[in-house]
Simulated scan of single mutants.
Amino acid sequence: MVKLDGITNFVAIAEAGSISAAARRLHLSKSVVSERLAGLEQSLGAPLFHRTTRKLSLTEDGIAFFERASRIVWEVQDAVAEVSERRGTLSGPMRLSAPVTFGRMHLGPALYPFLSKHPGISLTLELDDRRVDAAADGYDAVIRHGTVEDSRLVALPIAPSRRLLVASPEYLKHYGKPTTLDALGGHRAIYYTNRNVADWRFLDLRPDAFVRPPASLRVNNGDMMRDAALAGLGLALLPSFIVGEDVKKGALVRVDVGSEAAEEMIYVAHPEGRRASKKLQELVMALRGAFGTPPYWDVV
């Protein structure tokens, strides 16, 4: 007899790509996950994975089974959430991914009151600056900053995001303050490696309309970009939610080159084809209220 926990276990392995990763996601030991997979394969009378020393890959039977099994798991989770919502409560697990710096600086303080108000929700929040695959990695939703690039996601905006070109007073004193886009090529810059150099986008300009500065540092974390700018390593194009307070205090100076950086969005996105659960909808509303319009971190 096929058990639901065996199906849930299989879907987690298929999405995570390994038994170890699935065990971490399910908060189970590797031995339990392995035993459940073996039990499911025995019940079905067919192997679901090709096993090598390096990875697992789905067999043809596994691919066919996964298509329906993943729908079953989602439908069960959705049904449980709907019953809870009918009783007027928000409960059950929710798994989110968010950028490290935004999560630390702003998301956490906005989440804590929401979770206190809804103690039935068990939230797993994973902070990661890489762009995770919301569906394949098993997230209910991801919180992102930028533009919506994945057509498989449904985006729910929670706040606009202004980006500011900044540098330390010491850097500008030593290298001069650029006043035009053409002058940027003679400076040094700090770049975010999870995006390419063309991420320096300004309103109404083509990406190749000016020469970008050579890099003094490339790094995949906003906190370190800010710290590098404060240390005088170069110009940095950073969201106001990271550098707003530094600009207000004068620790960093806005650099006006005659054109504003293209505005972006902070949004919650869930996989296409899944309805946004009531608890996810309520979370979006809570975050919008906590951040405000315009958001509290914006500088004048």
Rank of each mutant, 00 (worst) to 15 (best):
274 R>V: 08
285 M>T: 08
140 D>F: 03
160 P>L: 05
122 S>L: 09
60 E>S: 12
21 A>R: 04
207 P>L: 04
10 F>E: 03
161 S>K: 01
257 V>F: 08
94 M>T: 04
202 F>E: 04
247 V>W: 07
11 V>R: 02
72 I>D: 11
166 V>K: 01
66 F>D: 04
143 I>E: 02
118 H>T: 02
33 V>K: 01
55 K>R: 14
254 R>D: 03
136 A>T: 09
79 A>N: 09
159 A>K: 04
213 P>W: 06
204 D>P: 00
151 S>Q: 07
245 E>M: 09
237 L>W: 08
21 A>Y: 06
117 K>I: 00
105 M>E: 13
42 Q>C: 05
62 G>S: 13
299 V>R: 03
55 K>I: 03
46 A>G: 02
208 D>P: 01
223 D>W: 10
53 T>L: 12
293 T>N: 12
132 V>L: 10
237 L>A: 06
254 R>F: 02
72 I>Q: 12
197 V>Y: 05
34 S>T: 14
87 R>C: 02
41 E>T: 06
215 A>D: 06
97 S>A: 14
221 N>Y: 11
137 D>H: 10
237 L>F: 05
238 L>N: 06
66 F>N: 04
56 L>R: 07
255 V>Q: 00
15 E>K: 14
252 L>C: 13
149 E>G: 09
219 V>T: 11
141 A>K: 07
41 E>V: 09
173 K>C: 05
28 L>T: 01
195 R>G: 05
106 H>G: 06
228 A>F: 01
97 S>H: 10
191 Y>I: 13
205 L>K: 10
44 L>W: 07
121 I>F: 08
259 S>Q: 12
254 R>G: 05
51 R>F: 14
291 F>N: 00
8 T>Y: 11
276 A>Y: 04
78 D>C: 11
